[in-house]
Amino acid sequence: MSLLNIENLRVSFPTEQGPVEVVKGISFELGRERLGIVGESGSGKSMTGRAILRLIDKPGIVTADKMEFDGLDLTTLPNKQMRALRGARISMVMQDPKFSLNPVIRIGDQIAEVLSFHSKLNARQRRARVLESLEAVRITDPERVYKLYPHEVSGGMGQRIMIAMMVILEPDLMIADEPTSALDVSVQAQVLDIMDDLVTRTGMGLIIISHDLNMVARYCDRILVMFNGEIVETCAASELANAKHPYTQGLLASMPTLDEHRNRLPVLDRDQLGSV
C-alpha cells in the first residue's frame, strides 16, 4: 500500500499579470522508499514538498484531485489535525539549520519541546529520548550537546540535530528539502549516511528534494525530475544515466566530471525545451 498518493497537484500564486502556476498538475505515489525530487530553481520542487505539508503561505493556492497520506485526505484535513500530523507522522528537514533552530534555546530543550507537543512523556523520559535520538544521529557525547546553544555547533552538527529532532517521533515520512546544500562535501556524505541509515532501520518513507542529481542518484531508490512545474522524468536511480527526456539528458551532460576532457560544456536550450 502506498504511503503517499498525489494526483494532479497544482500550486499557483496570483501576480499582477494573473495567476502563475509553479506546480502544474503533478501526480506520484510514494511507498516506503527513498524518493528524490530533482530540479533547478523555479522547477517547483520545493513548492511540491511544502504543498504536501500544507505549508504554502496565504496568496498561494493549492489544489489537488487527490492528496492522501496513509489513507488520510490531506486536502480536507482540519488544520488542528494537520498540525498534529506534521512533526508526529510527517516531518521536514530544512535547508539551513541556522534558520531552523531557535538561537536562544538549548539544543536539548528544543528537541524535548517537540516531544512535549506530540507525546505524553514526563520530563525525565523526554530527556532520555532526546539523548537517545542524538546518539542515533551519531553524536558521540549527547550529554554535552544537549546543553549547547545552536550557535555553538558546526553546520554539519546542526543539521544532524535537526534530523534528530525530526526522527525523534519516528515519523512515517520524512521530507528533506536540500538537506545538505549548506554543508561541506565531507559532512554532506556523513549527514546523508545517517539519514539513509535511519530510513532503512525504521522503514519510513523519505523524499529528498534537491538540485543535485548525483547526490540524489546515490541516496535514493527512485527519482522524479521536475522542470517548469511538471514531472518530466520518473526513473529508478540506477537508470538515471539512461534518462529519456531531453531535459534530464541535458542536465546530466552539462555537469563537469572529475575527468573532464570536453572543451566546452553542452548548454541546455531552454527555448526548445519549453516547447517539448
Partner: peptide
C-alpha cells in the same frame, strides 16, 4: 548557480 547555468558560466570563463 543551477547546474545548467553553471555550465554556461564555466564556458564563458573559459
Amino acid at each position: 548557480l543551477d547546474v545548467s547555468v553553471q555550465a554556461e558560466v564555466l564556458n564563458l570563463l573559459k
